[in-house]
Amino acid sequence: MDALKSAGRALIRSPSLAKQSWGGGGRHRKLPENWTDTRETLLEGMLFSLKYLGMTLVEQPKGEELSAAAIKRIVATAKASGKKLQKVTLKVSPRGIILTDNLTNQLIENVSIYRISYCTADKMHDKVFAYIAQSQHNQSLECHAFLCTKRKMAQAVTLTVAQAFKVAFEFWQVSKEEKEKRDKASQEGGDVLGARQDCTPPLKSLVATGNLLDLEETAKAPLSTVSANTTNMDEVPRPQALSGSSVVWELDDGLDEAFSRLAQSRTNPQVLDTGLTAQDMHYAQCLSPVDWDKPDSSGTEQDDLFSF
């Protein structure tokens, strides 16, 4: 819950932080000083300027060897085509990944977070970031790969997607708890209302004896509580940590079903599988986004697919 609360507080303090972009060759504004600060901008989305290598189908939802083989196929196909790589912007948030063309600003792909089953910074092609997700059109699994400016960037994108998945799962947990509370309150309110109706004398007997209905007592009954809980029953509950912020979080049926399955089948359902080692994760978390744009010590960066 700490990640969720800190993310909400950060967004309320400075929503404009989320509009910064990394990996864009110096076009961005001043960047936060450390990885923790940038992680807090996830709610509205972190932007990464990358190059799209392509996509291939895979048979399993996750796995280092599986993704490595898929990336190898994608890279080989991209090299064989001889075409310049498409420059894209990857927007990562707890909602998922939005992929747009840098030149036309046209939407290429919009992947809900619950469809993503794996992401990684490839070991062999260490400047490549990739994720595996279920197609929104059918049940097939797709591996999408992107060329980053350097290994640090690939690791940073991988960690960002993993963190977005974690925050999304926490949102789901909060929403589920809130819905259970509202359902319980609604049920209790309905029981109270039913009890009051059972003990209320029939209207005919009131008229016969000349008694008047006590409207004041009726007004004191917990009807307002019942209506408050039943009027918006169809509205999706939102985490309290975000009250007053500009973010509107809505959970669709697909996300609810997917996270429910994860909660039942996995020990740590909030953790998205990645190909990063503990050492890689520690190294990337210690980086400032400013470091992502620094040239690798191995030599001059080449803006070309064939540089790796």
Rank of each mutant, 00 (worst) to 15 (best):
Q163R: 14
A284V: 03
H137A: 12
I116V: 05
A78H: 01
D37S: 09
P295D: 01
E59A: 11
W249G: 08
C148P: 00
L4F: 11
A76W: 02
K127W: 00
E178S: 14
Q173E: 15
E217D: 13
N102K: 01
G25Y: 05
A68K: 01
T218R: 06
D256L: 02
E33G: 12
K176Y: 04
T100L: 07
T104D: 04
P289I: 03
D252L: 04
C286P: 11
G254K: 03
E250N: 05
D198T: 07
G190H: 07
G254I: 01
A185E: 14
M153F: 11
Q187S: 02
G210R: 12
N232S: 05
R196Y: 02
D252W: 03
G54I: 01
A221W: 07
D214Q: 09
A208C: 07
E178H: 15
P15V: 01
K220R: 08
D234L: 06
N110S: 07
L255K: 03
G23A: 05
L53H: 00
H28D: 15
E216G: 03
L193A: 04
P239A: 14
D183Q: 03
M124N: 07
F171E: 02
L255P: 03
W249S: 07
R151D: 00
L11H: 11
L262Y: 02
T56S: 15
L147W: 00
Q270R: 03
T120R: 13
Q106N: 05
L99S: 15
Q197Y: 07
K150W: 11
R238K: 13
M46W: 04
K152F: 03
P201T: 13
T56M: 12
V157K: 00
W35N: 03
Y114N: 04
N34G: 09
Q136E: 14
H28K: 15
G23H: 10
D304P: 07
A156V: 05
L212V: 13
L255C: 07
V207C: 09
V174I: 10
F169L: 02
V290P: 04
Y283M: 05
K91W: 02
E301M: 06
T36F: 11
S246I: 11
R261S: 10
G26N: 08
G23C: 06
G244V: 07
T200R: 12
C143T: 02
A133P: 03
L159E: 03
G23Y: 10
G190I: 08
D183P: 14
G275N: 08
D303L: 04
V207E: 10
A18I: 09
K127N: 00
E65H: 14
K19S: 09
V161N: 00
T120D: 03
R261H: 07
S243P: 12
E44M: 08
L47V: 11
S49A: 12
S307F: 15
E65T: 15
L287F: 15
T277F: 10
E40Y: 02
Q86I: 11
D291T: 09
S112T: 15
T200V: 02
E64W: 06
K5S: 11
A185Y: 13
C148A: 04
L159I: 13
E250P: 03
I98E: 02
D214H: 09
N34V: 13
E44V: 14
M281A: 11
A221C: 05
I108Y: 14
N34R: 12
S93D: 03
K84I: 05
K83I: 06
Y283L: 13
D198C: 02
A7K: 12
C286L: 10
T160W: 13
Y131V: 00
K72T: 13
S140V: 15
V128Q: 00
G24K: 10
G23T: 01
M46V: 12
G54P: 00
P201Y: 03
L31T: 11
T104H: 02
K91C: 04
T230C: 05
E33C: 10
A241K: 07
N268T: 08
L203H: 05
E142Y: 14
E142Q: 11
S224V: 04
R182Q: 13
T36L: 14
P269V: 02
G189Q: 12
S246A: 07
N138Y: 09
I71K: 01
K294I: 10
Q302L: 11
I97K: 00
Y131R: 00
K5I: 13
V75P: 00
T104A: 05
E235T: 09
S288I: 05
T77W: 02
V247G: 13
D293E: 06
D198P: 15
A156L: 11
